[in-house]
Amino acid sequence: MRQTPAGGADGGTATADGQLVSIGTVLTLLRDEFPEVTVSKIRFLEAEGLVEPQRTPSGYRKFSQEDVERLGCVLRLQRDHYLPLRVIREYLDALARGEQLPLPAPGQPRDLLDGAAELDAEGPTAVQVGREELLGATGVTERELDEWESYGLIEPNSGGGYDVEAVTVAKLVADLGRFGLEPRHLRAMKAAAVREAGLVEQVVAPLRRHRNPQTRAHAEATARELAALSVRLHAALVAAALRA
């Protein structure tokens, strides 16, 4: 079990008497400082290698005092320093090995969750590209782009430009087209994406209305985490359906 480094944590939360506790108890211990934390969030951090709880023979997670303190440290570094999970993991693991490292430079609020690591885009989501840039980056024709826009697969913003996600969408639509899938076939995917986005918005809306500025800032990270999980679930469901 990795020890929880104190660096950058600004304090910590411990379990009573050093007992191993359930994930529900961990949630209760963390909620006072991190009201937005959820069981799904803790499981996500485990999946990302930020914490390694023990398992009972029945498969239930059991967390030690060090696990809870490490989780508190991770959440604090996300909230206060806007660090991606990858950076936090490397930083805490180095400290656990006894290496003395300075706290990594703060990131931007959009980096609160490395979950975008799964969605993808290294660059800021605020970047815009023009129509010619989009065509050049994807290799599609004006006619194809017009058709995709008519089906709502790609939408320009009010200024006529496109978000970086539009480049990714255009490339994927083009790749699917090589297998004979036309824009009309992809409308169901677009509709499903809109519904999923609506579900994410229902979850993060209360965070955005929170009085605490840090909680409001964390809403974007939560949305990105939920989006990443949604993408993974969609991929798993498609794989399961194909096997069936």
Rank of each mutant, 00 (worst) to 15 (best):
R89F: 08
L45V: 06
V68A: 01
E149D: 04
P106Q: 09
L186M: 08
A105C: 05
D93Q: 06
P106F: 06
A193H: 09
T13Q: 03
R55I: 10
R184D: 04
Q108C: 11
A192N: 03
P35E: 10
A239H: 15
L50R: 00
G107K: 15
L71P: 03
I23T: 13
V21I: 08
F63P: 02
E155S: 04
E36G: 01
R2V: 09
R89V: 11
A96V: 03
R208E: 14
P124Y: 00
L45S: 03
G177A: 13
S150N: 01
I154T: 07
G59H: 12
R208I: 05
G12W: 07
L27V: 02
G59N: 08
R43M: 02
D146T: 15
L237C: 05
L237S: 02
V129H: 04
L134Y: 02
P156C: 01
Y162E: 00
L181V: 15
T15K: 02
K41M: 09
G115P: 07
L113Y: 13
S64Y: 10
G130I: 01
R79L: 03
L83K: 03
R209P: 07
G161N: 15
P35R: 10
V129R: 00
D17A: 15
L237W: 13
R224L: 10
G98M: 02
L229E: 07
V194Q: 02
A9S: 13
T168V: 11
L29N: 01
D10Y: 12
H210I: 01
R211W: 10
Q100F: 06
L176F: 15
E46K: 12
V37N: 00
N212P: 05
E33V: 06
Y162Q: 03
